Simulated assay, not measured.
Amino acid sequence: MADPFLRVAHALDPETAHVWAIHALRAWGRAGAPLAKEMPRLETIVAGVRFPNPVGLAAGLDKDARAITGLMALGFGSVEVGTLTPRAQPGNPRPRLFRLVEDRAVVNRMGFNNGGLDAGVARARTANRRGGVLGINVGANKDATDRVANYVAGVRAAAPVADYVTINVSSPNTPGLRDLQAGAALDELLAACVAVRGTTPLFLKIAPDLDRAGIDGVARAVIDRRVDALVIGNTTISRPGLRSAHGTETGGLSGAPLRALAAAKLAEVRAATGGQVALVAAGGIDSGAEAYARIRAGASLVQLYSALVYEGAGLPRRVVTELAACLARDGFASVAAAVGTAA
C-alpha cells in the first residue's frame, strides 16, 4: 500500500478512518488545494447543469457537507453530499462499517447518521465549489410518521443551494425505505417533491436489487413526473461470491463485487427508459475504462466512492485522465457523443 494516506486510514477502524478523512479533506480544502485541470473533452451538460467532467463522488462519504472544497480539489466533476434528514439522528449502533479487503468492498449499515438538514445545507451554502457541481442527497428520518413530508422538507431546503437534489429511497439500512420505490407510493413521493423543487434538477437514487418489473415501474414514474435523472444505484443486499469474513455482516455491499450487478441494472434501466431520462451509473467503478464502459452503456454521469478506500485520494484524477484517453482513442469529441453508443 504505497499511498501514505491509505496506510494511516487502514491502521484505524473503518468509521474512525472515515471521520479522520473528512477532517483531512476539510483542512486541505482550507489550504486552497487546486482543482484538477479541466479537460474540454470531458465537459458535459446534464439536466441543464454544466459538469466539468462526468466523474462524481457518490453520497455517503461527506454526509454532513463538511469537506466539499477539499473533495472538489481531488478532481471530481461533482460532489454529492448527504444523505441529510430533516432532523439529526445518530444512525445504527456501532460497529456499522466494515472493510472487505479481500474483495475490495465495503459493507455499511450506517442508517442515515447525520447532523440534520439545516446544518448540512448551511455548510453547503457557504462552501467553495471550485467550479464543480454540488448535489445534495436527502432522505427520511427513521422514526418519521410521514416520510413523504420528510422528503418534501429536504427538497425544499436543498433546492435553493444545490445544483441538483437527489431523493434517496434506496438505502437498505432504514426499515421500509425501499418500499417507496414502487407503485403509488413512488408516484406520490415524486409528485410532492417535483412540486417544491423549483427549477433545480431532481434526481432519484434506486437500488440495484430491483427486478425488471420494479425497474419498469420506476421508469414510468420518473418519465411521467419529469424527474431529471436516475442514479443506478445504491448498495446491494446481495452477497456475490465474497471471500472476506465480513461478507456476512448485515447492511449494504459496495465496491468491486457490485460491478457486474450495477452494470446489468444500468442496461435494464436504459432499456426501460428508452433514453428519455439521464442516467447516473454507480457501483464498482474504479477506473477510467469502467467509467467509459458505463457511459457507452447509457450513463451520462458516473459516481464512485468505495474504490477510494482502496485506491486513495489520487483515484478521481486517474479516472478522469483515463476516461479522456478512452474517448480520444475511439474518436469521441465529447462525453455526450459516447453516451449509449454500446447500448
Rank of each mutant, 00 (worst) to 15 (best):
A149E: 14
L204M: 02
V231K: 03
A245T: 09
A263I: 09
G233F: 10
P93C: 07
G312H: 06
A159L: 10
L12T: 09
G135W: 12
T200N: 10
R317Q: 02
V319R: 05
E268K: 08
D187R: 06
D103V: 01
R318I: 04
L230F: 06
G198T: 00
T273H: 04
A213N: 07
N92M: 10
C193H: 06
L327H: 02
A182V: 09
I232R: 04
A159D: 05
H23G: 04
I223M: 15
R212I: 08
W28E: 14
D216Q: 14
N150M: 12
T250R: 07
H10A: 04
A338C: 15
C326F: 02
A271H: 05
G274T: 06
E322H: 02
E322L: 04
T145V: 14
M72C: 12
R50D: 04
E38R: 07
V19M: 08
V169W: 11
A272P: 01
S306M: 07
I223W: 13
I295L: 07
R30Y: 00
A264N: 04
F332E: 02
D209V: 10
P95M: 00
G32N: 06
G75D: 01
L12A: 11
D216P: 06
I223A: 14
L304A: 10
G154H: 13
L308K: 00
V231L: 09
S287T: 14
A219V: 05
N92W: 04
A289V: 12
A59Q: 13
V46C: 04
L261T: 11
T273K: 01
Q181T: 08
N234A: 02
I206W: 00
G284F: 02
R239L: 01
F5T: 02
